[in-house]
Measured scan of single mutants.
Amino acid sequence: QWKVGDKCSAIWSEDGCIYPATIASIDFKRETCVVVYTGYGNREEQNLSDLLSPICE
């Protein structure tokens, strides 16, 4: 189960590419979260089910 502060990978809606991110907040009722893309600072809402394991850098 994901928690705030977890590192993950998420698909950015603008280009469909996968980027490393950190979970900033979680809404368990809606099963969504807000991620912050590492190195970019962009925030975006994602479905918890769409999150991927962190990418090894």
Results as ranks from 00 to 15, higher is better:
Q1V: 11
Q1H: 12
Q1A: 10
Q1C: 15
Q1D: 13
W2F: 05
W2N: 13
W2Y: 09
K3C: 11
K3W: 14
K3M: 13
V4Y: 09
V4T: 09
V4R: 00
V4W: 06
G5H: 05
G5N: 07
G5K: 00
D6Q: 00
D6S: 00
K7I: 10
K7V: 11
K7D: 11
C8L: 00
C8E: 00
C8N: 00
C8Q: 00
C8I: 10
C8T: 00
S9F: 15
S9Y: 15
S9R: 15
S9K: 08
S9Q: 12
S9A: 13
A10G: 01
A10W: 08
A10S: 02
I11D: 05
I11M: 07
I11K: 09
I11E: 03
I11N: 00
I11P: 02
I11S: 01
W12E: 03
W12Y: 10
W12G: 00
W12S: 14
W12R: 09
W12K: 03
S13T: 10
S13W: 09
E14W: 14
E14M: 14
E14Q: 14
E14P: 03
D15T: 10
D15W: 08
D15H: 01
D15C: 09
D15P: 03
G16D: 07
G16Y: 09
G16I: 08
C17G: 11
C17S: 06
C17T: 05
I18R: 12
I18F: 11
I18L: 12
I18C: 15
I18H: 02
I18T: 04
I18N: 01
Y19G: 04
Y19H: 10
Y19M: 04
Y19E: 04
Y19T: 02
P20A: 12
P20I: 11
A21L: 04
A21P: 07
A21M: 03
A21K: 01
T22H: 05
T22N: 02
I23A: 03
I23S: 04
I23R: 00
I23Y: 03
I23V: 07
I23E: 05
A24E: 15
A24D: 10
A24K: 03
A24F: 14
A24W: 12
S25L: 10
S25R: 01
S25F: 09
I26K: 00
I26S: 00
D27V: 08
D27Q: 01
D27A: 00
D27T: 02
F28K: 10
F28R: 12
K29V: 14
K29C: 06
K29Y: 12
K29S: 12
K29W: 10
K29G: 10
R30I: 11
R30G: 09
R30F: 10
E31W: 06
E31C: 09
E31G: 15
T32D: 04
T32V: 10
T32I: 08
C33T: 04
C33R: 00
V34Y: 03
V34M: 08
V34S: 01
V35E: 01
V35A: 02
V35S: 02
V35P: 01
V35G: 01
V36C: 01
V36I: 14
V36F: 02
V36M: 08
V36W: 05
V36T: 03
Y37F: 15
Y37W: 05
Y37H: 03
Y37S: 05
T38F: 10
T38S: 09
T38K: 07
T38E: 14
T38I: 12
G39F: 12
G39Q: 09
Y40A: 07
Y40R: 15
Y40P: 05
Y40I: 13
Y40K: 13
Y40Q: 08
Y40C: 13
G41C: 07
G41F: 03
G41E: 07
G41K: 04
N42R: 14
N42D: 11
N42S: 12
R43K: 11
R43I: 09
R43G: 05
E44C: 04
E45C: 07
E45K: 05
Q46C: 03
Q46R: 08
Q46M: 09
N47C: 08
N47E: 02
L48F: 04
L48V: 03
L48H: 03
L48M: 05
L48P: 01
L48R: 02
S49M: 06
S49Q: 10
S49D: 08
S49A: 13
D50A: 09
D50S: 04
D50N: 08
L51Y: 03
L51A: 03
L52T: 02
L52I: 07
L52H: 02
L52P: 03
S53F: 10
S53M: 14
P54M: 08
I55A: 11
I55F: 13
I55C: 12
I55V: 11
I55Q: 10
I55M: 13
C56G: 14
C56T: 15
C56F: 14
C56W: 15
C56M: 14
C56H: 14
E57Y: 13
E57M: 12
E57H: 12
E57T: 15
E57D: 12
